[in-house]
Design a protein around this nucleic acid. Structure first.
Length: 105
DNA sequence: CGCTTGACCCTGG
DNA sequence: TCCAGGGCCAAGC
């Protein structure tokens, strides 16, 4: 009725997932989207992060694309934080086999 | 109102 | 891992 969607794409779910990423590891947009209950909506996650306030406490630096490249406006800051957490950034890229999500495989 | 752009991803080759 | 093709979705112009 009246087109009122209750939880039509709730950004909170995404924020929660990002907040749960283990320090020292990274997650891709797609993984986060799927984990938040929105498989295939990776772009949407990117959009949310793009609009994230600069003073957000969310660990946005732990979010990279599926090939391990930091694709963020403040990539330098993200890289710095990741290095500080022990993530190896080789030639602007992260080995997802080793640092991806929770190194599942 | 349609085309372009963007913190994207999966499948095949 | 790289490239091409197709999908996804919202904001700008």
């Amino acid at each position: 009725m009246l087109g009122l969607r209750m939880a039509d794409k709730d950004p909170t779910a995404v924020n929660l997932v990002i907040a749960q990423i283990t320090p020292g590891y990274v997650a891709s947009y797609g993984q986060i989207a799927a984990s938040a209950g929105y498989p295939g909506r990776a772009r949407w996650v990117g959009k949310l992060l793009a609009q994230l306030p600069a003073d957000s406490s969310l660990p946005w630096h732990r979010v990279v694309n599926s090939v391990g490249v930091i694709r963020a406006p403040r990539a330098d800051i993200a890289r710095q934080r990741l290095l500080d957490e022990g993530v190896v950034v080789k030639d602007g890229r992260i080995d997802m086999k080793r640092f991806g999500w929770m190194r599942d495989a």
